[in-house]
Write a protein that binds this DNA or RNA. Sequence first.
RNA 1: GCGGGUGUAGCUCAGUGGUAGAGCGUCACGUUGCCAACGUGAAUGUCGCCGGUUCAAGUCCGGUCACCCGCUCCA
Length: 531
Amino acid sequence: MADNATDACDVKSMDDIMALCKRRGFIYQASEIYGGVNGFWDYGPLGSQLKKNLRDAWWNDVVMLGCGGKPGPDGKPVRIVPVDTCIIQNPKVWEASGHVGGFNDPMVDCRETKSRYRADHLKCLGEKGDTEGQIYAYIENDDASYASARKKLDRYKKRALSDAEIDTCALTELGNAELAITVGPDAKEVGTLTPPRAFNLMFKTVLGATGDAEIDKAYLRPETAQGIFINFKNVVDTTRVGVPFGIAQTGKAFRNEVTPRNFTFRSREFEQMEIEFFCHPDEAKAWYEFWRDWRMAWWESMGLKGENLILREHDRDELAHYAKEGAGTSDIEYRFPFTAPGYGELEGIADRTNFDLKQHQEHSKKKMEYHDTTRGELLPNGQPKGEWYLPHVIEPSAGLDRGVLAVLCEAFTPDPERPSGVVMKLHPRLSPIKAGVFPLVKKDGMPEVAEKLRAELHQRFGRLGAIEFDEKQSIGKRYARMDEAGCPFCFTIDGDTMTDQTVTVRDRDTLSQERMGLDKVGDFLAEKLGV
RNA sequence: GCGGGUGUAGCUCAGUGGUAGAGCGUCACGUUGCCAACGUGAAUGUCGCCGGUUCAAGUCCGGUCACCCGCUCCA
C-alpha cells in the first residue's frame, strides 16, 4: 500500500468518501431532516462503532497500558490515570486559562479588501473640525499604515496637511454614520468597514432555569485540558501517583468556529483525547520528545502510514503564548484529500511549561505546587528533603473526530477491479464490523451452521464490534457490502463445510480465499484483531 | 464574515414554465455453489426551506438554510 500511496491519494475524492460515509452509515449531517446545522455531524451505526474503537484503542494503549508498556525516559513504566470532568465549569476557569479575555476581541472586516482587523488595533484620522469629509483608518503603531492614511487624506483634501491639522481617534469611537465615510487601512472605497463584531469562539449558556443571562453566564468548554488542570491537586491528593505522571481524558469540546468546513475536520462540537503529563521542569524536554515520538508511532499503528502522516515541529514564532518558554510544539498531521498536498492537524504535542497551573494558582488563590519527596538534598537520616515546584506539562492533545476522518480517508481505496469499486481498508482493530459469516447459499443446512458460528464469534468478539450474518442474495454482493463497510474477514459456509468442517476465509485486502477448520475461526480472528 | 458554485429517491445524477425520471442501492419471492449473476415484483419525493411572479413553477425572481471551492479565521 505504501508504494502507491501517492497514486491512491491522487485518486481519492472527498465527495466520494462523504458519499460512502452517508451510504453505509458512518457519518450523517446533524439535524439533516431540518436542513442541517453548520458544523455539526452525527455518527451512524458503523461510524459510532469505528469512533468507539479508535477511542478505546487510545484509552487502552495510553491509559491502561501506559504508552503500550514502553518505559519512559526515566526507564520506569509510564503512569497515566483517567478523569472525566464537566463540560460546564465555573466561568473563572476560562478567565484563568485566557479563553475569555484573549479571544473576546471585537473584529472589523473590510468588504473591499477582505481583510479582518482587531477593532481595538485600528485608529482613525481626519482633518480637525471636519465632520463631513472622509475619515481614514490605520493600524495602530504601524508607521506604514499611518503614512498611507495621511497620504490618502492629503490626496482627498488636495493639499498636504500639517500634524496640527490632524485629529485622531479610536475606530471603536466611531458611530455607524462615521463608519460610512471611513476608508479602511488598505482600501480605496469608503464605507467598506463593518461595525466591530465580537468573535468569541466559546459557546455561551445560562445556568439555572430562571438564570439571568449576564450574571449566570457560563461556557461550554473549548478544550478538555482545563478540566484536568483544575483537578491536578485532587488527583495528587487522593491517588497514589507521583510526578512524573499523566492525567487523561476524552470528551466533547465546543468551539464556535467562524468557518466550519471540510466535513468533520473543523466541527463546532468535537471530541478530544487529551493527556496532561506532569513532570519536573528539568525533565520536560525528555518527556516532550518521548511523547512526540510515541504518539507518532501510535497513529502509525492505527493504519496511518507512509507519506500521508508527518510529524511537524513548530517554528519558534509559530508557538502559542503558553509554549514560548517550553521545549517546543509538534503537530502530527495527516494529508487529507482536502488539504493535499498540504496536511491537517490530528494531534498537537506541546510543552505548556507550568503556564496553566500557574494561571490557576493565581486566579484561584489555591496552591498548585507539588511536593516532590524524591528530590532535594539528603537529610542526616538519609531521606531527601523534598522539593516544591510547579510541574511542567507535556500535552499530547488529539482530535478523535479528526482521527476517525483520517482513518476513513486512509482506508478509502478505489479499486475498479472490484464489484464494489471501492474497499475500506480499515485496520482490523478499528473495523466496526469484525467479521462476516455467510452461508454460500440458503439451503442444505448451511444457514444453520453459519448461524452457530455467528453466535460463537458474537459471544467472543461482540464487545469489539459487530459480527455480520447475511444469507440474502449472492455471495459476491455480500462480499462487496463488506468491502464498503471495511469488514476485514468473511467466513463462508459451503457444501464442503458439511462434510469436512472447514470454511472459506475471504481476506478483504488481498481477496485471497483459504480454507480453515470451523473450530479454528475464533483463534484466527483473535490473532488478527490483536486480542 | 466576503466572493463564486451546488441543492431533484438511500447514493450518483437527468429533467425545454405544462402528468416526477434513470442507473445503482434497498426490500420481498424465486433462482443461485465463492466476488454487486438472473427473473418477477415493491417501497422510497412537499424537487433544501419560506415567500413572490404566473392560468400553471423542479424550472423564473427574492430571501433563507446547508454543503463545496477560494479568501478570512483556526487559542
